[in-house]
Design a protein around this nucleic acid. Structure first.
Lengths: 220, 220
DNA sequence: CTCACTTTGTGCTTACCTTCACAAGCGCAT
DNA sequence: ATGCGCTTGTGAAGGTAAGCACAAAGTGAG
């Protein structure tokens, strides 16, 4: 389930606060979901709760981590070191959540060879070699959209089977490869859509009120 | 619908290629969705297609943009100028898609007053003032998780009604405020989950094959 | 030991979303 | 003018997920 990481984060915060036991109600509130949904999700992993008491935080953290495959560190390559790639390379949230950035790759000669966040930047030409040598199964694509598909194809050919795509393109991959995409413009456009509807709604309200007033006046 | 931006991007690419008419089948392939779904989504906006022919690309771009509220430029504020905030401020994809970054806000005195991507960085203390003066309705939060809720509350109080949250926290807001979140670790964890299952599946396969072999041997 | 209280795990209903399949409509060739 | 082929728009079926509501199960006090 795609909500497990959310629960895991909430559990981590609780553990940091020294909480040892949590009810589905509390955890659901912390994760922003319905409590029945949370219990159903957790029951899918097995019966790790105690009726009348709740869930043991540490034990649940372990079980959820295990289910998510986070008991080991996954080696990750970041391809494309523009502003976004840099930000991702420097983002501390990865290391603390079971991911180890093991390679940085770019095509720009001005960047290749320099050190970013403690890692040497490798040239795109050596992509396959780096992926194979370092046993990388998960890749992050933060290149321009034009080259994203080509990079993707090469990653897949080199054995990568999970890709996180920040480029605004639809990537086509074999069905045994998992792709998730993050598109910031797209998210903003969805917000604009709702914003637009709010404005339209309030305009309609004003029009409606105006018409009511008119009707009153005419009715007199 | 949350897929309209996806269609819009595909349509933009087609328009750039000089394509004037497109069938639902082609557009669906370009956007990576089912053609029936696409037709139903578009029919919700009205009947803008011609049977036997398809959709006029330019006209459809206009209609979708209108529905998304992208015929005007939305002013946006970015709060938090760490690596990610910088990347967002420099991202060209916003301006070309109907968004104008009008303000950058941070709490770090070392950054306040400097210029990033052609805009002066304002101090967090002046957040409300900037939002009101520049008529900002959409905000991007790229601060550390600890201060995200506080920043969010202040934004809402200042009149912002749509928020794109990059901080790994669940924000609580009044129900008339729309929040969308982008959490990169979360996406990676979902990938790790699938990766994990692939490994588990292939291990199971090996075990199963081994058992088969054993059964054969024993059967002899 | 028993009873009252708490919280999990889950059967069932409801709502939504996806997809198939086809009638209706349009253009073009003859 | 007529018929053929293509594509849209949509009714209906199927599937999936959400949430209510309650039985089962555990705790602790008296």
């Amino acid at each position: 389930m795609a909500r497990l990481p959310l629960y895991l984060r909430a559990l981590g915060l609780l553990a940091d606060d020294g909480v040892s036991t949590v009810s589905s109600e509390e955890l659901a509130a912390a994760a922003g979901v319905n409590s029945a949904k949370l219990r159903k999700d957790l029951s899918y992993l097995g019966s790790y709760g105690t009726r009348g008491v709740g869930y043991d935080v540490d034990y649940l953290v372990y079980q959820v981590s295990r289910e998510l495959g986070l008991t080991q560190d996954w080696p990750v390559v970041i391809v494309g070191l523009g502003h976004l790639g840099h930000a991702l390379a420097n983002y501390g949230g990865f290391a603390s959540r079971g991911f180890a950035i093991r390679a940085l790759v770019d095509a720009d000669p001005a960047i290749v060879g320099t050190e970013v966040s403690g890692l040497d930047v490798t040239h795109l030409d050596d992509l396959e070699q780096v992926v194979r040598e370092r046993g990388i199964a998960i890749a992050v694509i933060s290149t321009p959209a034009q080259v994203a598909q080509e990079v993707c194809d090469r990653l897949v050919a080199a054995g990568v089977s999970s890709i996180l795509n920040f480029a605004p393109t639809v990537l086509s991959v074999p069905e045994d490869v998992e792709v998730r995409k993050v598109d910031m413009s797209l998210e903003l456009q969805i917000l604009a859509f709702h914003e637009q509807r709010k404005v339209a709604a309030s305009t309609a309200e004003v029009v409606s009120e105006t018409l009511d007033t008119l009707a009153e006046v005419v009715g007199r």
